[in-house]
Every structure is written in structure tokens, then in C-alpha cells.
Design a protein around this nucleic acid. Sequence first.
DNA 1: ATTTTAACTAAGCAGACGCTTAGTTATCGA
DNA 2: TCGATAACTAAGCGTCTGCTTAGTTAAAAT
Lengths: 188, 188
Amino acid sequence: MARKKEYIEEEVIEKAMELFWRNGYESTSVRMLEKEMGINQFSIYASFGNKKGVFIKSLACYKAKAKLELINKLQNSTDGINAIKQYFYDFINFSKESRLNKGCLITNTVNELGEKADQEIMSEIVNFATNVKTLFIEKLEFDNLKTTEIINKQANYLMVSLQGLSVASKMFNQGELDDFIENTFKNI
Amino acid sequence: MARKKEYIEEEVIEKAMELFWRNGYESTSVRMLEKEMGINQFSIYASFGNKKGVFIKSLACYKAKAKLELINKLQNSTDGINAIKQYFYDFINFSKESRLNKGCLITNTVNELGEKADQEIMSEIVNFATNVKTLFIEKLEFDNLKTTEIINKQANYLMVSLQGLSVASKMFNQGELDDFIENTFKNI
DNA sequence: ATTTTAACTAAGCAGACGCTTAGTTATCGA
DNA sequence: TCGATAACTAAGCGTCTGCTTAGTTAAAAT
């Protein structure tokens, strides 16, 4: 009936996601996306509607990548709280970019857009955060001495800690990050 | 000999700083600065050279404000590690913006610009961070049982934790932040 | 083989970006 | 009082922003 697309949406979105991850939302222009994705602006707008559309799909792509390379390992582990600690270490490698790191795309976005973030974007962020927190709670429940109240408090603690790790990995060295992780899990 | 300035540089920089604090560096345009500072673009460029110049002065203004409203209290306290804990709580109020928070301008900048930050900006950031860490170390030394190695590790831990608090305060509620702070100081 | 339809190319839209400059106004020393 | 000088106003520079559109090309259905 008509011509075929010369690109695969999932493939070009992954390249867009990498760009957003390195540069942030506002600093990534449609011209930059055009070059990195290897397709014309017309194709970008035909496939994803607008710049925000590309970003929403990029967030989904980030989630999928994080799940595959990072979260599944945590989910499948039976090592309780040590699994969470390992997740912290794994995250550093996951977000590695040359010497320093590019942080977590979700944390980066919260930090850049804050409360003035678009509603659609914000709900993707909250959804991702909720998933991670749920997993933390699951692993913390391996210790049956803890009340659900303690577990929830500790999960909140770990969520904030993880965001600290995301930002700090952009300017602190491995030793300082190690100090952080070791201290974080000292009394949990 | 010539005409007098109709504005005080320190006063208009404070308004610029508030704008950068809320919006970040890239998202704050010179037109926005013009309106918020209440002076013409010509005056901005005459006084501060360029947009980066305004930002550098804004960072200095932020430091001064933080020192006055936040850091001096920590510095003068003899309460050891409890003084640091109080500093964490004070920081939340310091960065309060309506219901949610605008974080720490320094942390926001690291997170936005990362390693591609201008050298002059980066050295301001590192300088600020070093000052805070030094204060943390001073307070941790109140406990004379600790070795300098332990103290340094704990200072690194607190520095990363503080960055976590900065980002998290943009999306988490007070209760969740309290959980974080209380748990953080359980580990010290 | 021809028609239909969607994916492509490339040019261009209006507005915002950081920054500059020509021309005017106010304050100073002489 | 007047010339010198710096601070002002406002218009505009070239470039980039997100997005659109007119015109062309390729693949499927008839």
C-alpha cells in the first residue's frame, strides 16, 4: 500500500535516550536528535509527535535497559539486603561514562525539571521510583525481625541514598562513592 | 565625571541567583534575567560580561546566603555530630519553595552540567563542597575516639547523603525526608 | 502497468537565544 | 555653564529553537 519505514523506532529511540541521558532534556535539541538518531526531523515528528514524545519513549527505553542490565539481577537475588548493596555498586557501572558518570536518567530529570515537569513525564518518573522502592521493600523483608514500619522507613532512606549516589557519581571518585555505600549499609 | 549606576550589583545579583536556583543555568535566559534583575541587557553585560559572569557572581551570592543562614550555625555549634544532623534539617527549610524544594544550587549545577561544566564554574563548586566537608570533619572530630581515616570516610558519606537530600527534596515529602535523615545519622 | 498511499528530502516558519551597538541622558570636574 | 564621560534605552545582529510544509520517492494493491 505504501512505502516502508527505513528505520526501527526502538533502535533510534535508544540513541535518543543516550543523548538525553548525557545532556538532559532542555539541552538536547531536535537537530542533535536528528543527527544522533540518523533520521530526518520529519520522521521524528511523524513517529513521536514532538520532542516530549521522543523523551517519553526514551524514558521507557531507559526503564527497559535498566531492568535488563540492573534491576532483574536485584529482583532475582535471594541475598536480602546485600542484594540492594550490590545494586548500588552495579548502578555505578551502569551509569559509567568515561572517567565520571552520567547519573540516573530519572534522577537527572527530576533534578532538571523539578515540580514544573510535565504531568506525563512526572508520572513515568514516579512509576519508576515506585518499582524500585517496592523491590527494596521485598529484599528488606528477607529479615523477618523487621516491622513493616521499619522496612518502609529504611526503603525511603535507601531511595534518597540512591539519588545521592546518582548526583555524586558525577563529581566524586570511586573511593568516595565506596565510602558512601559502605556507610549506607552499615546498620541496615 | 559621569553618570551613576541606577542599581546596586549585589542587589540585582541576588535576584539573578534566585532565578538560576529555581530554573537551572541553561533554562534561565538573559531576557528572563533582564526582567527579574530589573535592568537592561546592556547593564547586565556592562556589569558582568556575559551570562556565565552573572552565574559566577550568583554562585558567590548563594555561598554568602548559605553561610549566613545555614553554615554559620553549623560552624558555631559545639554539638558535634548532632550539629550536622541539624544542618540537614535546616537545609530543607533553606531550600524550601512552596510545597516542594528547589534543592541546593551547587548540587543542581553539578547535576545539570556534570563534567562538561566550565572550569571556572567547576572550581567554585569544588570550593564550596570542600568548605562543607571541612566543617563536617571538624564536627566529627568532637568524638575523639574516631581515627582520621574513619572521620574522612564518614565525611564522604555525609557529603553524598546531602546531595541525595537535595535532589530528593524536589519530589519526596517531609516524612520521607525525615526517614532519610534519621536513618543517615544512625550509621554514624 | 498504473494508482494509491505513506515515508522520505529539504527548505523554511516564527520566535527565542546570547550578545552588540548606535544614539540619548544624567552626572561629574573645570 | 559647559564639555567629558559613563550609564542608560531600544533596536537589531546572526544563530539556534521546536515544528511544519511543499514536493519527491518507493512500495503495496488493483
